[in-house]
Write a protein that binds this DNA or RNA. Structure first.
Lengths: 331, 331
DNA sequence: TGTTTTTGATAAAACCTTTTATCTCCTATA
DNA sequence: TATAGGAGATAAAAGGTTTTATCAAAAACA
């Protein structure tokens, strides 16, 4: 005598308890085929009573759809990746699809290992995410039989990628400052070999007028500091607003300005980029900044991979999702 | 005529190409049963040439081991969770086990949804992680047939949990300050209703001597600020060192001390807690702080769940993993 | 030479579902 | 009345693997 909870119930148990065949039980539960409404209800009720849940492995083996997708990411500390993963997950769970998380640490060998494992598990698709747009995805991804979506990363030309609209984000930042009456707007940003930094800088230049000037440097608070030191140690006319390439840079900028007794936003207005709340909420004053809507980006990527895995077609190319401005005290 | 890469190769293809039966192919590939060394090599070679990889669904269906485990987490912004997930993943990938990531957003309904999905997929085990130790895990976890590990979270008494050793972490912080010759050490920390905060505070009190004083507040930079304001607006003797409950608090403390022209570490030494590099590397001076070794915690949790899923036994209870001190400029 | 072991290989069952093809009743039509 | 058609149910195949039981041939033994 074994206890009733000893092992999982199978559809065979349900069928036997309902006094029908396995196929009838399956049809009834899935609501397909020709089934009498009465038996259908009975089977469903009994399945419920027994706590029956179909074995996803068996189902996937037969239907060739595992209802799982893989997400490849190259970072571990996750300021960019995790919001996206949360967005993806939110969409998937609503569709009964689970998410494999694979951290590749930028190691091609590890990436291959993970991709193989995902294929072995018959995932319905793969989302590749990166910490910067212009990062090469692992070559193994290019020739798969399953769909691949690139989020915050650049896929090959016939693939579909989702990026934040960096140019639009830069524009709304500059326009916000101009609406506040600022005309001498400086742009302090990160490394020039980041595509996103160049796109933002270009968009900024289009609007900034003759005063416009871009200072490339690093993605660090320290660089924000030293950039301000540089600006105020030269004789050129001083800015009345600064658009920063990241919240961290903005934090350094704000700290440096405060050290000089410059009032924010009265003397100089500051706008950041990222809306990384742990930074942007903690500056004094709190930082007005650009939000890349990473969770929404995850939503879109999730919907896309679901659609593709069902055979829907998507226009190849880069989809740029609009950024939004979060107004706080600094501008 | 279909192209050779049209679909995945099955073991049947390998068997046919090698001129052996399916069972022989299986035995050869897995190195079990009685197989001639020569045929074994041949089968392996041909499987390799064909790029054969076994279907994990079929294998899991039969062996009842899916070689996948689920990780339940309640946060989305991931400062604590993601390093742990990376640690777990590192261990698992070495053992050919994949990781389902489930973000529950602290929503019990969502947690149940995810747990059910994991069970349907026949995961070999579940790791529950949280953002604070004293957070109730979802009740569904308590009565599963598969093993559950609690990481950074408190399971029932017969379960196995992994926590950072908060008491030891607090002790090495205080001892470090004392080694530097400081005797008036203050403890500024977060909310008292966090168990971790209370444990650290208790350990601190044991060592701090008569000057010892704990200021509970919030886990924010702002609280660090206002705590310093409070300390310096009263007439009591001033501290020569401050042990902070988080790096964010420490950052607020350092900024406030600098505003007052107090030199760090000469006048006041500061130690943080978390080693959240984006904060601790950016303070001026850089922050000496306690690292909870979250990745190592992930390693241990991963090894534990692997062991349990193979039927090994683990002593129930809480395993406390030692923290380490990272010396930078502030103390 | 006849019998028992050992070796190597295989057929078939099993895992749990879904789906196709079949089958049995009934009812409606000619 | 004979036949066609439809409703409802089912047996069986399929999916890809592992494993058990079986089998044939070669080797070892008496």
């Amino acid at each position: 005598m074994t206890s009733p909870d000893d092992k999982r119930r199978t559809i065979r148990d349900v069928a036997k308890a309902a006094g029908v065949s396995i196929s009838t039980a399956s049809n009834a539960l899935n609501g397909i085929g020709r089934t009498n409404a009465e038996t259908r209800e009975k089977v469903k009720r009994i399945a419920d009573e027994l706590g029956f849940r179909p074995n996803a492995l068996a189902r996937g083996l037969l239907t060739k759809r595992s209802h799982a997708i893989g997400m490849l990411t190259n970072d571990t500390y996750g300021r960019l990746t995790l919001p996206m993963a949360a967005g993806v997950s939110e969409i998937l769970v609503d569709h009964g699809v689970s998410l494999f998380l694979c951290a590749t640490n930028n190691d091609p060998r590890l990436a291959k290992l993970h991709i193989d494992a995902l294929l072995d598990r018959q995932v319905d698709g793969i989302i590749f995410t990166a910490t910067r747009i212009d990062l090469e995805p692992p070559p193994e991804l290019l020739k798969l039989r399953i769909p691949v979506i690139y989020a915050f990363a650049q896929g090959p030309s016939d693939s579909v990628s989702f990026h934040p609209d960096d140019a639009q984000g830069a524009r709304i930042a500059v326009q916000h400052l101009q609406t506040l009456g600022r005309s001498r707007i400086l742009h302090i940003t990160g490394e020039q070999n980041y595509l996103a930094a160049r796109i933002r800088a270009d968009a900024y230049r289009e609007l900034a007028g003759s005063y416009g000037q871009v200072m490339f440097g690093e993605w660090s608070e320290e660089w924000g500091h030293s950039a301000i030191d540089a600006v105020y140690s030269r004789s050129a006319p001083k800015p009345d607003a600064i658009f920063c390439g990241s919240d961290e840079i903005a934090r350094g900028v704000i700290d440096a300005l405060r050290d000089r007794g410059i009032s924010i936003p009265d003397d100089v207005a500051v706008v950041g980029f990222d809306n990384w709340e742990v930074v942007s909420r903690q500056t004094r004053p709190p930082l007005t900044t650009i939000d890349m809507e990473l969770k929404e980006l995850g939503h879109r990527a999730g919907l896309a991979i679901l659609g593709l895995s069902r055979g829907e077609k998507f226009e190849p190319g880069v989809v740029r999702l609009p950024c939004s401005l979060v107004a706080r005290g600094s501008a």
